[in-house]
């Protein structure tokens, strides 16, 4: 039965860029634990020799020819922007760190 600490939830929230509240930390810690303990069953059946499936359809080698096709105008590109400046998306200062 996996246990999830508040700190772990806080770390996940930071990775996921969610400014969760104190109450949410407790709520999610509890709920994640319940959900994970119920889905942990997946390890019961899947033996080591079973190959994982990432794509249900068995397609391979799907390519595009290297030919330009029209995209969006600058105006269309910026149409949803909260703020724009000099033809660019305006965003808050970026920390030199991610």
């Amino acid at each position: 039965m996996p246990t999830i600490s508040r700190d772990e939830v806080a770390h996940l929230a930071r990775l996921a860029r969610l400014a969760v509240t104190e109450q949410e930390l407790d709520l999610f810690a509890g709920q994640l634990e319940v959900i994970l303990s119920s889905v942990a069953r997946v390890s019961e059946v899947a033996a080591a020799d079973i190959p994982p499936t990432s794509h249900a359809v068995g397609l391979t080698n799907v390519f595009r020819e290297d030919v330009p096709r029209p995209g969006l105008t600058q105006q269309q590109a910026l149409s949803g922007a909260f703020a724009a400046e000099q033809g660019r998306f305006r965003v808050p200062r970026i920390l030199d760190e991610s």
Binding site: A46, I50, P51, T53
Partner: peptide, 11 residues
């Protein structure tokens, strides 16, 4: 978790 789930998918 994810790895095992992808194996279940195969099964």
């Amino acid at each position: 978790y994810y790895g095992q789930a992808q194996k279940v998918r195969t099964l």
